[in-house]
Design a protein around this nucleic acid. Structure first.
Length: 447
RNA sequence: GCGGGCGUCGCCAAGUGGUUAAGGCAGCGGCUUGUGGCGCCGCUAUUCGGGGGUUCGAAUCCCCUCGCUCGCCCCA
C-alpha cells in the first residue's frame, strides 16, 4: 500500500461524523454549565511520572498501554491515557484547591496503545468531570446524576448503572489478604490470567470473564464483609441519594475498576449495544490521589465518558427510534438556502447576494458551476436545503432573485410557487429566510 | 501481547485458474440550451491492499508483508 494512511487505531472523523460530535459536545456543555462545572484544558503531553504515580504502576494502562518517548531533552514524556491525573496536576500546580472545591469538566483525545476493536481505539476521546474537594455521599450521587441526565437528554436508552463500593485503603488491604488466602487454596482452578493477577492485582480477578473462574468466585469472600462500618454506611447513603433522585442502579459487588486511585464509590454506565467494550461512562471516588500527587489530602470524585462509544449508542438509538431525540442529534447539517445561478451577470450578483445572506447568519450554499438549471436544482435538492434562490439572466437584468420552495413536503415538483424579491433591499427577503431557517431548526431539534 | 475472520472503483458488492473484471449507490454528462425529487441513455477499476513465487495463463493457488475487523487481556 503506497497510499499514506493514518496510524493504526487513529481514526479520522469525517464531516458526517463531526456534526454529530458537535451536537453532543454542545449539549454536554449545556449540562456541565447547569451543574456548575467549569472547563479545564490541560496538555496532551505530560511527564511519564505523573501517570505512573497517579494511575498506579501495576495497572495495565501504565504497564503496557502508554505512548511514552524521550523528548529532545531526554525527559520521559507520555501522551495522556486519561484525564484525571492531568486535571489534578493542573489544579495543584495553580493552587486551585486553595480557593475551595473545584467542579471541573474537560474533553479531548486520550491515547492508549492497545489492539483496536469495536469501541476501542488508540486515540479516543473522552469528556469527563472531576469534582475536587467534594466529600459528601450526596455529591457522589450528584455527579452520577449529571452523567445520567446528560445521557438521557441525548436520547440514549438501554443503559444500566452499576455501582459498588471499594471502601477505604484499609478495607481493601484487609479484603485483599482474605481474598488471596482463599484463592490460593483454589489456585489450580483459576485460569492462567487470574493466576497471574493473584500476585499483581488480585482484586481484579473478581471481574474475570472466565466461566470457571466466575463459578469459583461464587463462594469467594466478598469485599462487603471486609468493609468498616463507616464505609458501609457511606455506601448506603450514596444509594439512598440515588433512590431519592429516582436513578435506577444495580449494585455489582464484583465491580472493580482498573485504575488504582479509586476508593469508596465506583460505578460504570454500560450499554448492551456495544459488544465487548460495554462501558460508556466510568468513574468513582479517588480521595487518595491528590495527596499522592503532592497535594494536601483532598477528597474527589469524577467520571469519564467515551465519546466514540457514546456515538455508537447514540446512532443505535437513532436507528431504533427515527423520530426520537437521538435521531435529531444525529442529523446532518443542511444549508438554509441553495443558490442556483446561471450566466455571467447572475454569477456576479449571486456571489454578492450569498455573502450578504451569510452575514445575516444564514447557511448559504452557492452552486459554483454554470450547468443547466436542471442540474443545479438536482444538487439543490440533494443538499437538503428547504429553499432555493434562483438568479438567471432574466433575474439579473431585473435586479431580483426568485425564491422557490424545495422538498416534497413543501411543494410538489412542477408546483411552481415562486416569488421574486428585490436584491436592492434584502431586508424583507432575509426576514423570510430567517423565519424559515428557525422553524426548520426547532423542528429538527425538538424531534 | 495472544487467537479468529477479512482485504475487488469514493461506498456496497459478484467473480474461487482461461480472451475486454458483473451489478447497485454516489459522481459527471445527456434526453430537458430556465426549473429539482421519478425515468431512460452514456461515462467513471489496463486492475483486484503491497511484494515475491507457481503456471502457457492468477483477482482466483503458495509464501511474505501491510492493513482492517472481531474476541481475549484491559478500559472509555
Amino acid at each position: 500500500m503506497t497510499q499514506l494512511q493514518s496510524l493504526r487505531g487513529m481514526v479520522d472523523l469525517l464531516p458526517e461524523q463531526t456534526c454529530r460530535w458537535q451536537a453532543v459536545e454542545s449539549l454536554a456543555r449545556q449540562h456541565f454549565q447547569r451543574w456548575g462545572c467549569r472547563e479545564i484544558r490541560t496538555p496532551l503531553l505530560e511527564v511519564t511520572e505523573l501517570f505512573a504515580r497517579g494511575i498506579g504502576e501495576a495497572t495495565d494502562v501504565v504497564g503496557k498501554e502508554m505512548y511514552s518517548f524521550q523528548d529532545r531533552g531526554d525527559r520521559s514524556c507520555t501522551l495522556r491515557p486519561e484525564g484525571t491525573a492531568s486535571v489534578v496536576r493542573a489544579a495543584l500546580q495553580h493552587g486551585l484547591l486553595a480557593q475551595g472545591a473545584q467542579r471541573l469538566w474537560y474533553g479531548g483525545p486520550m491515547f492508549r496503545y492497545e489492539r483496536p476493536q469495536a469501541g476501542r481505539q488508540r486515540q479516543f476521546h473522552q469528556i469527563g468531570v472531576e469534582w475536587l474537594g467534594v466529600t459528601s455521599a450526596a455529591s457522589d450521587a450528584e455527579v452520577i446524576a449529571l452523567a445520567w441526565d446528560l445521557l438521557a437528554d441525548l436520547g440514549v436508552d438501554r443503559l444500566a448503572l452499576e455501582i459498588n463500593t471499594l471502601g477505604t485503603p484499609d478495607d481493601r488491604q484487609l479484603y485483599r489478604s482474605r481474598l488471596v488466602s482463599w484463592l490460593e487454596q483454589h489456585e489450580n482452578v483459576l485460569d492462567a490470567d487470574s493466576q497471574q493477577r493473584l500476585r499483581t492485582n488480585p482484586l481484579r480477578i473478581l471481574d474475570s470473564k472466565n466461566a470457571q473462574t466466575r463459578e469459583l468466585l461464587q463462594d469467594a469472600p466478598m469485599l462487603e464483609q471486609s468493609l468498616a462500618a463507616d464505609s458501609r454506611s457511606r455506601h448506603q447513603a450514596v444509594l439512598q441519594a440515588l433512590d431519592d433522585l429516582s436513578i435506577p442502579y444495580v449494585v455489582n459487588p464484583r465491580l472493580v475498576r482498573g485504575l488504582d486511585y479509586y476508593g469508596h464509590t465506583a460505578f460504570e454506565i454500560t450499554s448492551d449495544q456495544l459488544g465487548a467494550q460495554a462501558t460508556v461512562c466510568g468513574g468513582g471516588r479517588y480521595n487518595g490521589l491528590i495527596q499522592q500527587l503532592g497535594g494536601a489530602p483532598t477528597p474527589a470524585i469524577g467520571w469519564a465518558l467515551g465519546m466514540e462509544r457514546l456515538l455508537l449508542v447514540l446512532e443505535a438509538a437513532a436507528t431504533a427510534n427515527p423520530s426520537g431525540r437521538a435521531a435529531s442529534l444525529v442529523q446532518a447539517d443542511v444549508p438554509d438556502v441553495y443558490v442556483v445561478n446561471r450566466g455571467e451577470q447572475a454569477h456576479r450578483q449571486a456571489l454578492i447576494l450569498s455573502r450578504q445572506l451569510r452575514s445575516a447568519g444564514l447557511a448559504v450554499q452557492r452552486d459554483e458551476s454554470d450547468s443547466a438549471f436542471g442540474k443545479q436544482f438536482k444538487r439543490a435538492d440533494r443538499s437538503g436545503a428547504p429553499v432555493a434562490l434562483v438568479i438567471g439572466e432574466e433575474e439579473a437584468d431585473r435586479g431580483v432573485v426568485r425564491l422557490k420552495a424545495l422538498k416534497s413536503t413543501l411543494s410538489e415538483p412542477g408546483d411552481d410557487q415562486q416569488e421574486d424579491w428585490s436584491i436592492n433591499d434584502l431586508g424583507p427577503l432575509i426576514a423570510v429566510l430567517q423565519n424559515g431557517a428557525n422553524s426548520e431548526r426547532s423542528e429538527t431539534t425538538q424531534g
